[in-house]
Design a protein around this nucleic acid. Structure first.
Lengths: 148, 148
DNA sequence: TTAGACTAGTTAGGTATCCTAACCATTAGG
DNA sequence: CCTAATGGTTAGGATACCTAACTAGTCTAA
């Protein structure tokens, strides 16, 4: 008899706790976004553009899990306020190479920085050995995000 | 000399890793929501209604970090498809006591279950001692979510 | 080499989500 | 009472999301 493919109750309970924690953590950190000058969807797209270098609209849409028309609009708004510029790929003149401007990188770091400061302040309440446990757990968990 | 109130670099790095992990985890799990019959905002509000028992619109809006008019509309839609019912608080006839219907609880469990199954499948790849580290870390991290 | 298939992106049009401002209805305090 | 405060809704506007249909550039194969 092989192990059933259905996850067992133990894993489900751990999954539940992890899921719940992630939701509540991000909900708390979202409070920081209120001071940002751009919307959450725009900030998230900008983040991908900043870190993934020149990226096509198609890839950007896939990364953000939205359709190309939706991303087209978001990019137009980001471009309109000067946070992103669009280049045309010389090898394929249909495709875009989206890049962040210096101002775009600044705005992103500003929003992200506020989130991280809030979170770091929470972590500050942990002992040094507790932080080690957390750090180790993240290293472990990062593996489950790698597509199988 | 006291420790500076500014979080140190160590905490910021750990915060960054934790933040990034939470974002990527929820982004991955969001793929499961595509099969749900209701939208993410509605699912999230429904979740609060199911777990927080009879709740006022004001409190629900605060929990979801939106304004009362926004929540008013979401509740109207949820009520329209029979997932939520509104009672009037007899002690304060202005206030609502929002409750999930049996169908509402079913729809919520359906969507949540799919997310948890995906996550549990990922956790299944960890060894039993790794799961213990993760479990311990979550217990520690849950403390930083408690409002100071 | 050129017709047809395919791919990247945009436009059009609809619903949902979010906001602020303004508005009822009810409650609480003087 | 009568005014101020509170819970919710309505109105109106911007963004975010989708599908369907379109344009323009690329690739393939006869």
């Amino acid at each position: 008899m092989r192990k059933p493919s259905r996850p067992d109750g133990e894993d489900l309970r751990l999954a539940d706790r992890l899921h719940s924690f992630a939701i509540h953590l991000l909900r708390r950190l979202r409070e920081a976004d209120r001071v940002s000058s751009i919307t959450p969807a725009q900030l998230s797209a900008l983040s991908v553009i900043v870190y993934q270098g020149p990226v096509s609209l198609k890839d950007l849409a896939a990364a953000e899990q939205v359709t190309p028309p939706t991303m087209s609009r978001i990019v137009r708004l980001l471009e309109g306020v000067g946070l992103v510029q669009r280049l045309v790929d010389p090898n394929d003149r249909r495709a875009l190479g989206l890049l962040a401007t210096a101002e775009g990188r600044r705005v992103l770091q500003e929003g992200r920085g506020e989130r991280l400061r809030i979170l770091a302040k929470g972590l500050d309440r942990l002992s040094s050995s507790e932080k080690q446990v957390v750090s180790g757990a993240i290293s472990i968990l990062e593996r489950i995000l790698v597509k199988p």
